[in-house]
Design a protein around this nucleic acid. Structure first.
Length: 437
RNA sequence: GUGGCUGUAGCUUAACUGGUAGAGCGUCGCCCUGUGAAGGCGAAUGUUGCGGGUUCAAAUCCCGUCAGUCACCCCA
């Protein structure tokens, strides 16, 4: 046998998850799952590895630099899943005749990007997406927004807002202000940074990098930073952009979405018409929205929108779709930071101490009775000093300790100690089962 | 991919302008031969990330390297 030791080290941007991390993560994921399923979304899973060509050309050069790409043993050009949406489109396209539309699915899976790790950014992380495929109706968009708000509340947030806008409306603004439609995406990418870098920053960026005149920029920024009541904004824009059919279409869609939310009883504080929401991604074609945590310096925790032309690339005919992604990693961080979830809860309820090796038979009996009654029970495996065993329970956060000593055995009882209050009582094992139920 | 900052015991860190590393927490033992989280006493743990250079002398200065971290790009 070799005596050489291996230095243990984890790859940068990859993480080990211990119990306390997993408890929070599972709470968050289960909350999403439950709400998704309540709204009629079904689960979908796709492989970790895909042919490179399904991602290539879809996401842009920037993204392609971050692919975990290699040749497999059969010489195939493959890569780890970069994001969840493209494989979904692939799977839908491959099974187009089997799937019943509208197809609503959610996906909570790990993806990999060879990005430089930093705060809240990892090379392996979990993506949480839900989408409705095969319907043009904005009811799907509106319902998704409602669902997103419900999830945020279920997670325990009360200061957040979903900012809603529409790409068609923005498209109209850009034409109205005199910019070229070719610059639409790059203008959207800059506008999207508005909350982060401010009006001045956006102006600077657009002037430096794009072929847009200062006059046009000022015009766009003025419209996009308008605030007010939803109804007022919509009617104001309808008049302002009366010569732009595409804007009118977008505004009508927004009107329908806001009507839906109102009728569904969604609290008005949780959503808003935010014309500055643009989203950086190229593929959005209609309504777009982001959910933002308002207190603290968290920012956006979800990004969504309608993308009617993306799946078509895999199928050869138009397949409309809408949906989006929730930033699970960021949400988990916030929950941990704000102690909104008690992650110290250890699943084990009772530690049965082993008082003395000669009492092993009776001790195991006690543990068995508890386990038969589905009480998560741990048996201390060594007959060491009681204080050591109690200390173990304390450090593990196990709420109860059962002591099976000679005195108790004589009376056919055990001692139950509550670790939080320090109280202890002698009783029959079956009484413990009743007490903890 | 670009740039900034930081590497001293398991963790947090001290060491004035270079003079052969000290503490708190934790760990372990004992006070306490049937009781944790409090208290008292004691113990163990460091080639100061690694390699080289300057110097009588380097944790400290210089160069390189590796690692971590933050920001930008981009994004979740």
């Amino acid at each position: 046998m070799s005596t050489k030791t291996i230095t243990p080290r984890i790859l940068p941007g990859f993480r080990d998850f211990f119990a306390e991390d997993i408890y929070v993560r599972e709470f968050v994921m289960n909350t999403f799952k439950k709400v998704f399923e309540k709204y009629g979304y079904e689960p979908l899973e796709t492989p970790a590895l895909e042919y490179t060509d399904i991602f290539k050309g879809e996401l842009g050069e920037e993204a392609e630099k971050l692919f975990y790409r290699f040749k497999d043993n059969g010489g195939r050009d493959v890569m780890l899943k970069y994001e969840v949406m493209t494989p979904m489109c692939r799977a839908v396209a491959e099974n187009i005749n089997k799937i019943v539309f509208p197809y609503k699915r959610y996906q909570i899976q790990r993806v990999w990007r060879s990005d430089r790790p930093q705060k809240g950014r990892y090379r392996e992380f979990t993506q949480c997406d839900a989408d409705t495929i095969g319907s043009e109706s904005v009811i799907c968009d509106a319902e998704f927004i409602q669902m997103g708000i419900e999830v945020m509340q279920k997670l325990g947030f009360d200061k957040f807002r979903t900012n809603i806008s529409n790409r068609k409306f923005l498209n109209g603004i850009i034409q109205f202000s005199g910019a070229s439609v070719d610059d639409f995406i790059s203008i959207c990418m800059s506008i999207d940074k508005l909350p982060k870098i401010g009006k001045g920053g956006v102006k600077k960026e657009l002037l430096e990098k794009k072929r847009v005149s200062e006059k046009v920029i000022v015009e766009i920024l003025n419209i996009v930073t308008s605030t007010g009541q939803i109804e007022d904004l919509i009617s104001k824009f309808k008049i302002l952009l009366k010569n732009s059919p595409i804007s009118q279409e977008g505004l009508n869609e927004l009107e329908q979405i806001f009507n839906y939310l109102k009728n569904a009883g969604v609290k008005a504080e949780f959503y808003q018409f935010s014309p500055y929401i643009a989203r950086g991604l190229a593929y959005y074609t209609g309504p777009i929205w982001e959910t933002e945590i308002l207190d603290g310096n968290v920012g956006s925790v979800s990004g969504s929108g309608r993308y009617n032309n993306t799946i078509g690339k895999f199928v050869g005919k138009k397949v409309p779709a809408t949906g989006g992604s929730f930033g699970i990693e960021r949400i988990v961080e916030v929950l941990k930071d704000r102690k909104m979830f008690n992650s110290s809860v250890y699943a084990t309820k009772i530690l049965v101490t082993l008082f003395d090796a000669s009492l092993l038979k009776q001790t195991v009996e006690v543990a068995n009775i508890l386990r038969k009654a589905d009480v998560p029970t741990m048996l201390y495996p060594e007959a060491v000093k009681l204080d050591k065993q109690l200390k173990y329970a304390d450090r593990k956060g196990i709420p109860y300790v059962v002591i099976v000593g000679p005195e108790e055995v004589k009376k056919n009882e055990v001692k139950l100690k509550n670790m939080k209050t320090g109280e202890q009582k002698e009783m029959n094992v079956n009484q413990i089962v009743k007490l903890l139920k």
